[in-house]
């Protein structure tokens, strides 16, 4: 027979309060072995009390209190391994490139969509010059009509950094959106990829028609290779989400999505520092005539090659052994 509620509370409360105290200590960090043992004992006792309350005092505040207390203790005791700073190093040394290699086919499909957009945009403008009115923003067209680069003008008024920071945040937004819109069954990602491809293709073709191809090359060659690679990778991450939704395999959709999203977000997080770095190149080296075109092109190709060499080679030897260990 169960004891009256106040008796139960009065008898067991000291244990609950010391468990709350220990949990507060645990959050601050640095518990001794004795305290950990005590935490374990108190948690088990509280769990037993919860079971008791579930049977004899259901729906009371004591029941809810114990529920919450046990949940907090459960979260503290069964913690997943915490990410530490060494994990960041390990992430860039091994995990990010390894994930990219494992998900390579998504990145390839994403690249294919982007190229498709690029070809579409370029073909439309090359075959039908008036198509440019549809595909190229008004401001850019005005500059091209006058035979100037739109980047020259901004530079003469404002220092290059204003352009750089504007470009960087714009690119970051595009990257985030390319990934996140994968949740719309992957359609959002596909649209963003093709759309960006069409725009870049159309602008390139328009410049080429107006005899400004070299000027455009001068502007984009230093940062283009790495930047387009990153957009492609973010697209791959978005497609992973879409694929998990469309074809979850043997798991329920929600679980498949959560599982695959982890791989996808690794790709996006891994790209972030490279994107910030390439934004600096885009702001300082690409515009203006400080550097000759051939140097910019060489730099761009080198950076692109280094980026992909890192992605394809880094952590290759350790990857096999560590996956086997798990």
């Amino acid at each position: 027979m169960a004891a009256p509620l106040p008796t139960f509370v009065g008898r067991r409360r000291p244990d609950w309060e010391s468990l709350q105290g220990l949990l507060a200590r645990q959050r601050e960090g640095g518990m001794g072995l004795a305290e950990l043992r005590r935490l374990d004992t108190l948690y088990r006792r509280a769990a037993a009390d919860l079971a008791h309350a579930q049977t004899f005092y259901p729906g009371t505040d004591v029941h809810r209190f114990l529920n919450q207390l046990c949940a907090q203790a459960y979260a503290a005791i069964y913690q997943p391994p915490r990410e530490r700073w060494s994990a960041v190093r390990d992430f860039f040394r091994r995990e990010f490139p390894a994930t990219l290699r494992a998900e390579g086919r998504f990145v390839a499909v994403s690249a294919a969509f982007f190229l498709l957009g690029l070809l579409l945009g370029a073909l439309v403008v090359l075959l039908e010059p008036r198509g440019a009115e549809l595909l190229v923003p008004q401001g850019v067209r005005d500059y091209v009509a006058q035979g100037r680069m739109w980047t020259d003008d901004i530079l003469s008024v404002a220092p290059p950094n204003a352009v750089s920071s504007g470009i960087a945040t714009n690119n970051l937004t595009v990257i985030i959106f390319t990934f996140a819109s994968g949740i719309l069954l992957g359609l959002g990602t596909v649209f963003t990829l093709v759309n960006n491809g069409v725009q870049i293709g159309a602008i390139t073709a328009l410049c080429a028609r107006e005899g400004m191809g070299l000027k455009l090359l001068d502007f984009i060659s230093a940062h283009g290779p790495v930047e387009l690679s990153i957009i492609t990778i973010a697209g791959g991450a978005g497609l992973i989400l879409g694929q998990a939704l469309i074809d979850p395999g043997e798991l329920p959709r929600a679980q498949a999505l959560a599982l695959r999203a982890k791989a996808a977000v690794k790709l996006v997080l891994g790209c972030a520092p490279f994107l910030a770095a390439i934004a600096v190149v885009e702001g300082f080296i690409s515009p203006g005539s400080l550097f000759p075109t051939w140097l910019k092109a060489l730099l761009g190709l080198t950076l692109g090659a280094l980026f992909w060499a890192y992605l394809l080679r880094a952590g290759r030897d350790t990857a096999a052994s560590s996956t086997r260990l798990r």
Partner: peptide, 15 residues
């Protein structure tokens, strides 16, 4: 008046 790099970093930081 800030140097270009500082300005870029500032905007990136805010973002």
């Amino acid at each position: 008046g800030l140097s270009g790099l500082a300005q870029t970093l500032l905007v990136l930081g805010a973002f």
